[in-house]
Design a protein around this nucleic acid. Sequence first.
DNA 1: AGGTATTCACATGAAACTATTCTCTGAGTTAGG
DNA 2: TAACTCAGAGAATAGTTTCATGTGAATACCTGT
Length: 417
Amino acid sequence: MENLQLSGQPLGVQNDNLQSSLQEMFDSFLKRQSLFLTKDALQAGYTPTELPHREQQITRLAKILAPALRGEQTSNVFIYGKPGTGKTVAARLVCSELERAADTSGRAIDVVYLNAKMRRVADTEYRLAAQLAEQFGVSVPATGLPTKKIYDAFFNALDAEKRVAIIVLDEIDRLVRRAGDELLYNLTRMNSELRRARASIIGITNDLTLLENLDSRIRSSLGEEELVFPPYNAVQLQDILTRRALHAFAPGALSQEIIPKCAAYAAREHGDARRALDLLRVSGETAERCASQQVLPEHVDSALEKLETDNVLEAIKTQPQQSKAVLYSIMRLKASNAEVSTGDVYGVYRGMCERAGTHTLTQRRVSDLISELEVMGIISSSVISKGRYGRTRTINLSANQGAMDKATRILKAEFAC
DNA sequence: AGGTATTCACATGAAACTATTCTCTGAGTTAGG
DNA sequence: TAACTCAGAGAATAGTTTCATGTGAATACCTGT
């Protein structure tokens, strides 16, 4: 061990150098003024106290829910809007104010918020009912019981006292897609089974056509009130970012072009305020890492690339093995071929599985996996007909080159055999 | 030349199947009074 | 007789296979001029 050397220097000397350079780095980090005041104001979980450009929707929702304060049942509400248009934040804001008002007036109002995106939490009928039961203090097993029993447990717990419950179902379109619309029917009917408590539902969705596709019984009861959240335009996004930046950044930390640049980017992405805020935060982090005194436009550019790369790599890493194998097949084909079809991908994929001696999925399943990769934004594809030569999907990689290079390296290491 | 039928290579949808994880229930077994 | 053990039935779920049907344009074939 004593003789171990790196680049000609004894290990002890190396360590001393490393330690002192790390110390210097930490010292200069501490001495430097942070660009952020409270970074939390830009994080995903932050609930702002004001929601500019959503006053109309908030007032309307508050008016719809207000009867709950008198112990009356409120109308069910359906909230539509593209991602990042403030639907969830607005609903949460109104509900928490409602709960506060109920506390001071001594009324019992319970708001339950469930998001169908939480996989293995509230994405099937059984799990949704189980979650609702849990929220009202009844513990139920993760599996093993008939769904009807779980509903009974939930209804009994809810009906144990006189109260108004408001159930917020976020990303309700996912729920319907995975579990069918029967569960919505069961939920909208629950007031007929309750004797003391009253319940109403706020459904939140990105899918503007969802309500049209539901069973007419559900449509009429769930869509008693409808609220639309239009996308923010660039000017509104600038306003939102400016207000948040005031809380988040130290004075003078942002150069002039930053907010318009972030707003313009998000306006292109269907007015998604969440993306704009993410971009602003990561731009700030990038600037800090570069030891810059100010966030500059080039920091926004590299933040943009970092966000996309991180999203893609995270999505790929969490994929099951078979899905990774399909993606790697696409990447291999794409490296040599301009046009890649489902059949080509399946051929390469099958070859890989045979060589590795692993189970080979059917082409039907692989076709679905390709669709899933598309939904995640890793690839893009379009179904084209080549006339007598059949109908197939042409597949392209859609993430930036940097992200794809990194992903290829990761997958190559995994499948190289 | 123009119209119609055929063909290909999948896409897409629905149903069925498999494996896993879990609860409930009732029958059999055991221990203690 | 109460407490415990254990096997079997039943339920939910994810992931998959199997089967059936749909799709759209290039190409082949047919018909009339």
